[in-house]
Structure formats: C-alpha cells, structure tokens
Design a protein around this nucleic acid. Structure first.
Lengths: 218, 218
DNA sequence: GTCTATATAGCGATAGAC
DNA sequence: GTCTATCGCTATATAGAC
C-alpha cells in the first residue's frame, strides 16, 4: 500500500476506536492488533501516531474526563448557599461520564497523572471549594471523597454483582431472598444508591460547613 | 519427581502466593507459570487444585472479603442509636481490608457473584439495616452507597495520583500549586478523606432516619 | 505513513509418563 | 499429584520496503 495521499489514521480516530473496544470487551481486549483491525490497518501503523500502547490508553482516559461538565464552577465565586448544588451537579456529571465507560474506571482511578483534562477537573473543584470558604485541607478531602463515591459507583454495578439465580441465595443467606431480582432494575438501583449517598454526603457537609468556618477564623 | 508422599501444594498455599503476586505486581502479573514458579512447582500442577485461573482469582478475592470484621452486626438487633456506629466500624474494616490489596479491588468491585464470603457480607449488612428499622429499599441503597465509598477509596489513592513534579502543575493549574506534595503524606490524605466522607455520609443518614421511618409507617 | 516480516516473549490449558 | 512436553495462540514493538 505504501504512503497514502491522505493519512488514514488520526489520533482522534484511534482514540475513538480504542474506547469502543474497551467499552464492548474490556481493558484486556484492547491490543494493538485488535485496534488496528478495527481501523482497517495493520498494527505497526499505530506507532506512527502513538509511541506506546500506554500513551493510547492515556488519551482514551483523558477523552472521557474531558467530557465532564465543569461549567458550574465557572463564571463566579460560589457563595455559602451555592457550593452544595454545584457539587451535586458536578458529581452527577462525573458519574455519568464514568458509568458510561465502566471498564476504564480502574485505569482512571489511578489518578490524574499528567493528563490535562483530569488535572483541569481537579484544579477547578479544589479552587471552587476554597473560594466558597472551605479551608484548604477540607477542600482536598472533600474533592477526594467525592471522587471515591463517584469512582466506586462507576467501577462496578452493585446490582449486577448478584447472580440471577434464586437458588444461590435461598440456602445460606437469609436476607438475600430477593437479591437475584436486583439485576432486573440494576440501573435504577445503582443510580438510586448513588443519589442517596450523594444527598446524605452533601447534607453532612452542609452541617459541617459553619463549624469549620468558625473554627478556622473565617 | 512423580507423586510426592505428601502434597506440595494446597489450595490455601496457592491462594496465599497468588495474592502476594497480585499485591506486588498487579493483576496482569498473575500467570500460572509465575505463580507456579513462586511455589517451586511447574504450572500444570496447579490444575490438580483448581480447574481454571479464574477459579484461583475467585478464591483470592473471597479470602480478602473473609477477613472483614462483621461482628458488629452479630449478637443483637441494632437499635436506632446503634446502627450508625456499627456501620462506621464496618466501613473502616471493609476499607482496611481492600486498601491493603488495591490491585484486586477492580476484580472485587464486579460484585459478590457466587463467592461465599462476599455473599455473607452483603447478607449481614442488609439484614442489620432492615432490623434497625430502615425500609428494605433504603437498606439496599445504603449498603450499596457504602460499598461505593469504600471501593472508590481503595481502588486508587487520590494523593498518589498526582505526579511528584511541581513543574507539571505550576503552569496551567492555578490551584494545584501544592499538589505534588500530596504524595508525601498520601496515607493520611486518603484516610482523612475517607473519614470525612464517612462521617458526613453517616450524619446525612442519621438526619434522614426519622423522616423515613415516619413516612413508612414504622 | 502504511506495509510485510520478524524479534522476543508470554499466555492458559491438556496429554500422558511416573 | 507432580512432572515433561507441547498445542495453539497472543502480545508489544522494531526494521526496512515502498
């Protein structure tokens, strides 16, 4: 085939295709051969656009984080009445972005590293919390614990973790009699659990807010 | 060598060694050859004790969950004043068990499946919450959202996710000036974030409790 | 910038000897 | 119950032709 007049591959096409494979078949299914096949080229061609497979995975991960809406932190400094709703909207957007691609969440959970979209997200959340009056040490921990809830809810479905087989539970687990039915409504179950946790967490933080501000001399 | 007078391998030894490899080098590093080498045998011998590699991994995962203390749910029915502290103690034990083996958390996050220790854990937590007066739908969601927080905090360190290189952040991320120092105290940072989130979450649930009980006619 | 060919290495699992 | 030998397959990455 030799050199085509216009490049067949672009970084964007490679990233898009890699994400589709990871979504459909998991992280382990992403190989250079498999990816190249999907793009109708041969594996070595990928190395004209990325140096290593790890670099491809970084780009895939950052492309997901880049989709998370951060507009609730822009425009103006959040007041004492505003940060809880901003945090709620951000957490929902964050979870939606991750839950759409659960197979890559373990990779993303390793942290932002040097990926620009992930760093921008961390920067905006931390800055907004500090601006809203939280002490820096609390802002760090609030950002982290929100990430825990989001990542935990996206890394694996609670409801889908149970087997669709009543016999497994009936014998030895007296309270799990209906666990096999969780699968039917797994999306509602998982989203409902996330929303309950999010609301409770925010309520707890709202209760803490005046105490912490008084204590830190604000 | 032929048949030894006493078995060299046992399921317990295989599981222990497999866990050590996963802890030290990650899930991908666990191969039958690598595992056999660690046990000073050859790979095919493992198949006298487990049918597949997946079966070994299931046993490894369940051995971790089996270590989680559940004694706070035993002995007596938890009263309206007792469930929050029981939940707190359970969450800490759960997190400690998972955070000691972060590389296997993505595997565990897929759910209990048919693994007995994981099913026992789910059964006990759900049963305790229902006994304490929570409606069943809330008990499911509370158990799930606690698992989200625990799994999210264990699947990857927040603090270790940042690079130890001030130059990465100084340029483009105005609020992350000290992010490179998170690594120094990563354990305190991560545990502090978990404790803050746990307390806030429990405070929120405590506030919700009387409302829900009144509403459901209890 | 894509190709063919290949280097180098590893994988899970099975058959059959002892 | 462990061994040797092996099947069939996969992987990331590089060299050099066009």
């Amino acid at each position: 085939m030799a050199r085509p007049r216009r490049p067949i591959l672009t970084r964007a096409r490679i990233v898009e295709s890699a994400l589709a494979i990871v979504d459909a078949e998991g992280l382990d299914a992403l190989s250079t051969r498999r990816l190249a096949h999907e793009l109708a080229v041969k594996a070595p061609s990928l190395y004209n656009h990325f140096s290593t497979k790890e670099e491809i995975l970084d780009a895939v991960g950052d492309s997901i984080i880049a989709e998370v809406d951060l507009s609730m932190f822009n425009g103006h400094r959040l007041g004492p009445e505003e940060w809880p709703e901003a945090l709620r909207r951000w957490a929902r957007a964050y979870r939606a972005a991750l839950a759409a691609h659960p197979n890559i969440v373990p990779f993303l959970a390793r942290g932002p590293g040097r990926r620009p979209a992930a760093l921008k997200l961390a920067d905006q959340v931390y800055g907004a919390l500090v601006d809203a009056g939280w002490p820096r040490s609390h802002a760090t921990r609030i950002g982290a614990t929100m990430r825990y809830l989001v990542a935990g809810s996206a890394v694996g479905s609670f409801a889908l973790g149970f087997v669709d087989d009543p016999g497994v539970y009936a014998e030895n687990y007296p309270h799990l009699g209906d666990a096999h039915r969780l699968r039917e409504h797994h999306e509602q179950v998982d989203e409902g659990a996330f929303e309950l946790g999010l609301s409770a967490l925010l309520d707890g933080l709202i209760a803490l807010y005046p105490t912490v501000r008084a204590g830190s001399g604000a």
